[in-house]
Design a binder for these strands. Structure first.
Length: 302
DNA sequence: AAACCCGCCAACCGCACCGAG
DNA sequence: GCTCGGTGCGGTTGGCGGGTT
């Protein structure tokens, strides 16, 4: 037996909100607050709306200090950084961006930012030495744990069915104790990395990262293993302990990867936001010519 | 000018979580 | 410990408007 609906769908209005409805809702909440009961609110406010609909309207549109419109480069970086770390936890990401709603960010990601990032993927799949962000790193590029360079295979043009990542190597023994990089805060997860190659299978046009069916978290959010569509290959994704974001340098097309550890004992939210910003801002993330990168992405994928 | 296409975004839907009883 | 109702969240849908053919 399914759940009872939250409201009588036959008697509530659906679709776009009229200005009068907005006014009624806003005035009621400003006067009485939500009362902690959204289900009862529409009746009290004289609205023929579902309580959930009222809540959504308030949170996403009527609430004070809501920011709409263009996202700044800084906001882009924060979104990308957090997405790399925690996936599509939009409410958490929104919490880091004052005035932005989860719905806004989700829409922005799905319609614009994802495509922008897709455009960062290089035309060539030649292996190159990576260019490493330096400001937030205290180790040279030879330190393979932090950033691996990745190899791609053109999709659908050969029998190759996976993406090869370079083997992880253990960090220098003195590294963790001296690093301020948030990605290195959990030493245990680093040293447990096995020095082996990872071949991620392509299945149903999806690259599979982590063990298949590794969705073991209680909320089903699957943050430690994710599927990545081929067209989103710029995200090299997670294995069980690591994630990797690859991008190309907008100036010379050189590819770089940013990666790190992701452990159960250290949630992404433990990362200092400033550190995350610093990491992303040290990449060539910004200053992307969207028109050019779109073109590149198109050429590469089709 | 009309038809069609496509991107954007507000809103909906269903599921999971959580707390009260 | 279980049930139930309310809430929050993420995925998806569908209407609208602008651009293109």
């Amino acid at each position: 037996m399914g759940r009872a609906p939250c409201c009588d769908k036959a008697s509530v209005k659906k679709g776009p909100w009229a200005p009068e409805e907005d006014t009624m809702l806003k005035e009621y909440i400003e006067k009485h607050g939500t009362g902690g009961n959204w289900i009862a609110l529409p009746q009290k406010a004289g609205l023929k709306r579902c309580g959930k609909s009222c809540r959504l309207r308030w949170l996403n549109y009527l609430r004070p200090n809501i920011k709409h419109g263009d996202f700044s480069d800084e906001e882009d970086r924060i979104i990308c950084s957090l997405y790399v770390n925690i996936g599509s936890r939009w409410s958490i990401i929104a919490a880091q961006l004052p005035g932005r709603t989860d719905n806004d960010i989700k829409n922005y990601w799905n319609t614009k930012l994802k495509k922008k990032l897709m455009g960062l993927i290089p035309l060539s799949h030649q292996r190159k030495q990576p260019s490493f962000p330096s400001s937030s790193l205290q180790n040279p590029p030879s330190h393979q744990l932090y950033g691996e360079y990745c190899t791609y295979s053109p999709i659908g043009t050969s029998s190759f069915t996976g993406v090869e990542l370079e083997p992880y190597t253990l960090p220098p023994s003195n590294y963790a104790s001296t690093s301020s990089n948030p990605f290195y805060q959990n030493q245990d997860s680093m040293t447990s990395l096995s020095p082996m190659k990872y071949y991620y299978p392509i299945k149903d046009n999806m690259l599979m990262f982590g063990s298949e069916g590794s969705c073991s978290s209680s909320d089903g959010s699957c943050t430690q293993g994710m599927e990545i569509k081929q067209e989103e290959i710029g995200y090299q994704g997670y294995n069980n302990d690591n994630f990797m974001l690859c991008y190309s340098n907008s100036n010379d097309g050189e590819k770089s990867c940013v990666g790190g550890c992701y452990s159960q004992s250290l949630t992404p939210l433990d990362y200092d936001l400033e550190d995350i910003k610093q990491l992303i801002s040290s990449t060539s993330f910004n200053n992307v010519d969207e028109n050019k990168t779109e073109e590149k992405g198109f050429y590469y994928y089709y």
